[in-house]
Nucleic acid binder design. Structure first.
Length: 254
DNA sequence: ATGGTCGTGAAACGA
C-alpha cells in the first residue's frame, strides 16, 4: 500500500502534473492541500477516469483539501466538533479499520501575529480531536502540510530560521503534543540522505540551492509502525516547469 | 534571502 501527500498550490494549475504523477506512482491514497477550488469546480472526472474516487472540502482562492483513493471512503469529516473554522483545511476519511486525516495547517505568517495565535490554537484543537479518535481507531494516519519543521534537522539553515515562523519552539511543541499521542513521523523511521526537504520557496533560487524545509509529514500511529516499509520525498515534480513549491511525500506499507 | 516568485484575480494579499 502506498499513501502520499502533496501540497499542489492550485489544483487548477497543477492538474496535469497530479494526473501524471498518479499514473507513474499508482498510490492507493493521495492527500492534496491548497487545491484553491470550490467543490463545484473540483475536477472529479480527471481522477474518476483513472480509477480514483475523490472527496474534497474546498473554497475559492485559498486553502482547500482533497483525498483521492482507490477504495470507497467512509465517515467523511470536514469539520471537527471543537474547531469552528470557515477555512477548508481538514478532511478525514475511514477506509475499513484505517482512519486518515488530511491537514493543511495554517501557515501562521509571523511569530506573534494574529495568524500565529490562530495556528497554535488550531493545532491544539486538532490534537484534542486526535486523542479521542485514536482511542477509537488505533490504525491512524495524519498527513499533510503541517507548516512546521519538526526539528533543526529539517531545516537547511537553522540559524537563519531560528525561532521564525515554521520553526519556532511553540509551533514545534504543538506538533510534539500530537506526536506524543502515539504518532510517529514515518520519514524518520528510516535512514535518509542528509538535508531532505519537502518545500522550497519560489524565490531566490531556493530549490536550486536546496534551501528548503521539511514541513510535509506523514504521521502514523504505533499500530501502523510495524507495517510501514519506507517513506520518501519525491523531488521530481519540483523540477518541472510551473511546479508547486512543495514536493510529494510517499509512505509505503506492507 | 526579508524577495529578484507564484496563484488568485484584476490590486493587493497570502504563502
Amino acid at each position: 500500500m502506498k499513501i502520499a501527500t502533496w501540497n499542489v498550490n492550485s489544483l487548477r494549475v497543477r492538474l496535469p502534473q497530479v494526473v501524471d504523477w498518479l499514473e507513474v506512482h499508482q498510490p492507493d491514497i493521495l492527500a492534496l492541500q491548497e487545491t484553491k477550488l470550490s467543490d463545484e469546480e473540483f475536477p472529479q472526472e480527471a481522477f474518476g477516469d483513472r480509477g480514483y474516487r475523490a472527496v474534497y472540502s474546498g473554497q475559492k482562492t485559498y486553502n482547500g483539501v482533497a483525498i483521492l483513493c482507490r477504495q470507497e471512503p467512509q465517515d467523511i469529516v470536514t469539520d471537527l466538533p471543537n474547531l469552528e473554522d470557515p477555512q477548508r483545511r481538514i478532511l478525514g476519511i475511514r477506509l475499513g479499520d484505517i482512519c486518515l486525516l488530511n491537514l493543511y495547517v495554517p501557515n501562521g505568517s509571523e511569530v506573534g501575529s494574529e495568524k500565529y495565535v490562530y495556528k497554535l490554537d488550531w493545532l491544539a484543537r486538532v490534537k484534542d480531536y486526535l486523542q479521542e479518535a485514536l482511542a477509537e481507531y488505533p490504525k491512524f494516519i495524519v498527513l499533510g502540510d503541517f507548516n512546521v519543521a519538526p526539528g533543526d534537522g529539517d531545516v537547511h539553515n537553522p540559524e537563519i530560521w531560528h525561532e521564525t515562523i515554521l520553526c519556532s519552539t511553540p509551533e514545534r511543541e504543538a506538533l510534539k503534543k500530537i506526536l506524543d499521542l502515539g504518532f510517529h513521523d514515518s520519514f524518520r523511521l528510516f535512514g535518509q540522505e542528509g538535508q531532505s526537504f519537502s518545500w522550497w520557496d519560489y524565490r531566490g533560487g531556493a530549490f536550486r540551492r536546496n534551501w528548503g524545509l521539511r514541513i510535509d509529514l506523514i504521521l502514523i500511529s504505533k499500530a501502523l509502525v510495524p507495517k510501514c516499509t519506507g517513506c520518501a520525498i519525491d523531488k521530481e515534480p519540483r523540477c518541472l516547469q510551473r511546479p508547486s513549491d512543495h514536493a510529494p511525500v510517499i509512505a509505503t506499507f506492507a
